[in-house]
Amino acid sequence: MSVTDPIADMLARIRNAHQALHDSLEMPLSKSKAAIAGILKDEGYITDYSIEDAKLVVKLKYSSGKPLVAGTKRISKPGRRVYVGVSDIPDVQNGLGICILSTSKGILDGYAARSENVGGELLCEIW
């Protein structure tokens, strides 16, 4: 089955698996999804991720039985791309969340994009 927006599909799968209190989930693999999973692991939102048989397997993380990902929001969509400069990178939930950007230096979170002094397409926000 073809998915129009694979990043939105990834965020929805993570949200649904968290609500059902699953330990892990799997989804079709792409380089951008693997890069986003790497950022989520580095920021502590998921335990780990791995690539198995052309699928991305994400191990979810909970704290006191509650998911660490409280919310997600897809910003740039296939019908409306949103680009930001380095000075316009948003603070998500007053610094309690992260934003993920697609830049000329790869897919980065907002803090790394500011330190690299690059802007780009604002993909999503996670808190």
Rank of each mutant, 00 (worst) to 15 (best):
S2L: 13
V3N: 05
V3M: 14
T4R: 13
T4E: 09
T4L: 14
D5W: 09
P6N: 11
I7P: 00
D9W: 09
R13H: 15
R15N: 12
A17Y: 09
A17L: 04
H18M: 13
L21S: 13
D23G: 05
D23P: 01
S24N: 08
S24W: 11
S24K: 14
S24R: 07
E26S: 14
P28K: 13
S30Q: 12
K31R: 14
K33T: 03
K33G: 01
A34P: 01
I36M: 03
G38E: 11
L40Y: 12
E43K: 15
Y45V: 00
D48C: 06
D48K: 15
Y49E: 04
I51M: 07
D53P: 00
D53E: 15
A54G: 03
L56I: 01
L56R: 08
K61H: 09
K61F: 07
K61M: 01
Y62G: 02
Y62H: 12
S63L: 03
G65Q: 10
K66R: 14
K66W: 06
P67H: 03
K73I: 06
I75A: 06
G79F: 10
G79E: 09
G79Q: 07
R80W: 05
R81N: 07
V82A: 03
V84G: 10
G85C: 04
V86I: 07
V86M: 09
S87Y: 06
I89S: 04
P90M: 07
V92N: 06
V92H: 05
G97Y: 12
G97M: 07
I98A: 03
I98L: 08
C99E: 02
I100D: 05
I100E: 03
L101V: 00
S102Y: 10
S104K: 14
K105R: 14
K105P: 03
G106I: 08
G106F: 10
Y111W: 11
Y111A: 13
A112I: 00
A112C: 05
A113S: 13
R114C: 08
R114G: 14
E116V: 05
G120W: 13
G120A: 11
L122K: 06
C124R: 05
E125V: 00
E125Q: 15
W127K: 11
